[in-house]
Design a protein around this nucleic acid. Sequence first.
DNA 1: CATGAATGAGTATTCATTCAT
DNA 2: AATGAATGAATACTCATTCAT
Lengths: 222, 222, 222, 222
Amino acid sequence: MAEKVATKHRGSGSSVGGGRLDSDSTLIATLVAEGLLSDPQSTRGRLLNCAAHLFEQKGFARTTVRDIGAEVGILSGSIFHHFSSKEEILRCVMEEVIHFARARMAEAVATAGAPREQLHACIRCELEAIHGRAVPGFSILVLEWRSLSAESQAGVLRLRDSYEQIWREVFSALGGPLDDPALSRRLIQGAIAHTHNWFRPEGKGLSLDGLAAQILRVFAPE
Amino acid sequence: MAEKVATKHRGSGSSVGGGRLDSDSTLIATLVAEGLLSDPQSTRGRLLNCAAHLFEQKGFARTTVRDIGAEVGILSGSIFHHFSSKEEILRCVMEEVIHFARARMAEAVATAGAPREQLHACIRCELEAIHGRAVPGFSILVLEWRSLSAESQAGVLRLRDSYEQIWREVFSALGGPLDDPALSRRLIQGAIAHTHNWFRPEGKGLSLDGLAAQILRVFAPE
Amino acid sequence: MAEKVATKHRGSGSSVGGGRLDSDSTLIATLVAEGLLSDPQSTRGRLLNCAAHLFEQKGFARTTVRDIGAEVGILSGSIFHHFSSKEEILRCVMEEVIHFARARMAEAVATAGAPREQLHACIRCELEAIHGRAVPGFSILVLEWRSLSAESQAGVLRLRDSYEQIWREVFSALGGPLDDPALSRRLIQGAIAHTHNWFRPEGKGLSLDGLAAQILRVFAPE
Amino acid sequence: MAEKVATKHRGSGSSVGGGRLDSDSTLIATLVAEGLLSDPQSTRGRLLNCAAHLFEQKGFARTTVRDIGAEVGILSGSIFHHFSSKEEILRCVMEEVIHFARARMAEAVATAGAPREQLHACIRCELEAIHGRAVPGFSILVLEWRSLSAESQAGVLRLRDSYEQIWREVFSALGGPLDDPALSRRLIQGAIAHTHNWFRPEGKGLSLDGLAAQILRVFAPE
DNA sequence: CATGAATGAGTATTCATTCAT
DNA sequence: AATGAATGAATACTCATTCAT
């Protein structure tokens, strides 16, 4: 059965996501200009965009290159004009996700005041990222880590550390219930990442901001 | 290259794990008697045992039924005399893991004193489970949740709730920094689950007990 | 389009060939018993048989595993029950071809008298092999050498040397127009191999025996 | 991973070869003028040049048009402005190789004296051709014959016969151990072609001229 | 004449599952 | 209950060829 093309998405979004906040548009433009993000209009950008979406929804192993091609509107063979393997797609998605999330959080921390406000900003940023608001594909970093080859893991890890560094500095300045900033970060990272499994921001109950406030209470009691 | 059998494990352990604490032996015997755990000596038990091990190491998608058969010492075709599909193996592993983890934690809570001590016991129990000490395969519950079909998820979820109920009751009795016991549980669950990714109990640094104490300080400040 | 099976050959021949001389039957049986040849009735034997035929006709690169499966009457996927890769098939074909050709030539040399008669026997043996009379697949050794991976080449080369050794010994005993038996062998090897491209034994002109006599005149003038 | 251009060869050689003897330069110029060879400076000439090189090294099937383009310094798509298919490249390579080899051998025979000297010249010519000294790509004529379509084979065969004709005439004049000049040619052709598989002219042992002398001794005993 | 992105038919290989013995 | 050979559908990836720019 021959492969058929039926364009679904002719995306006009970022390469790392769909419906995003207006305030992020300029940030994306800057990162594209710096070469850290692919132009979301380009085939490559749309490919990463759609792949991120599918990996998040169905997981890397259960997403086929045909799925990705179909979502973008090209045949699966054409994908290999842009990436040499399926795994390279995953690696690039992760890299762009980190670049964007890092830039976004750095900005938020810079405009915050006291350390506790900075922590609040970080929590809000990461929650927004995890829940697809601002940095679609962010959860892939956690969920699909093991789908990456050892070499790719090493490269992405280095990049990811520049993101983690921001968190650790905030915890260092703040103090908090624990002495070790790195340990604090790891615990809060797990707590926030896990919200992906149970928290639904659309719901009538707790809002994303409300959740951020609660997490802040645990990791930075007044 | 025909499939060959070369017995590796002729397990004498629980169906959910290998080297375990002596104090758990009687618990396992009880659960086997109640029909909640498979006899670890039986083929079925050994199958679940090995599958749990492999799913934890390589992930569900990357583990083949041939791998499982080879580990147990039977051919892949024979597995389907015991389970109707690979997914059923995963479901059964998860069910037995929950039964065992629940019984183990219930026991620990029962022998603990004040609520804060009960929380401490829960934290220690789950950390031991996650790090393969006591309940091998426990991390599969988190890591491979999405590999389960929707129907299986529903069934396992019901079971898992009996486990979660214990946690929620402890948090209810304790109070803690947050008003909502369910929210507290979810945050601590994420924090503990994530230790799987970074904490190495063999290391010279923080011990598993030390880690439990630190987590207790965050979620139950004195 | 799903792959369909349509049995063509349910072979009753050797794993290395179809219509063969009666005098070879017992030789084949011996080699099968020694484990040097696959049972031509078994799936593995028929697989090698058909593969040899196709590789000879269309070349290794242009023969697909589907072609081979179709010829044997199984689906392409089933082939990998018997061989781990297409290249392994080629390697095994070559190995069995060498075992058979060597045994055949050793027998012929043993029953020949003077060195010149021995050379005559060798020439006739190799011509029969090349022209598909006795050792189907023999030409693959020359034609598809480069399709073998470096490691496989090394292994097959060692085997092939036991075949070449017979030739060299015959030339050593004979003398001939050149001093170097190895050089003589190489020149005659090329001359004989090349007959594959132009000589048609069915033709009315020169017979295979006639050709052998002529080659003998060149490399062993009276 | 889009296709990138990185000029490797901006050839200044013949379309059929790189480092060649000075005495061949004028011959090439003549053939280019006659339209029998492509201008080695032109894109077409460089294409044939590089293709010959790659086909010889890796084989026709394992050489991709991208490989060829990359070697020349253009993208694979551009190749089809010069040739209508990959196979046409092979056919043209073969044709130019024959034209050149024929002219070269004709010259050598013309300057030789007695028939035995003429045969010596032929042998040396063909050995030089086979071993990439003088007519790069010559071995393709033998090795990749089956990669040519039936129609192309017919055309090239006609051309090749004008080359073979020279050999046959020499054998006719000489006599030799066999009565049939065509048979003599076929045997010597195989012997020479096969040297491609084992003879290394760089080696310390037998030189190319030494090898020619030995072959002469076999096919034209004094 | 060259580019570069895309096509589409094909490739070897994988693997859960079936079933006669 | 186990074997072992087979299925069949799916998988990632390849590559000659086309064509609008």
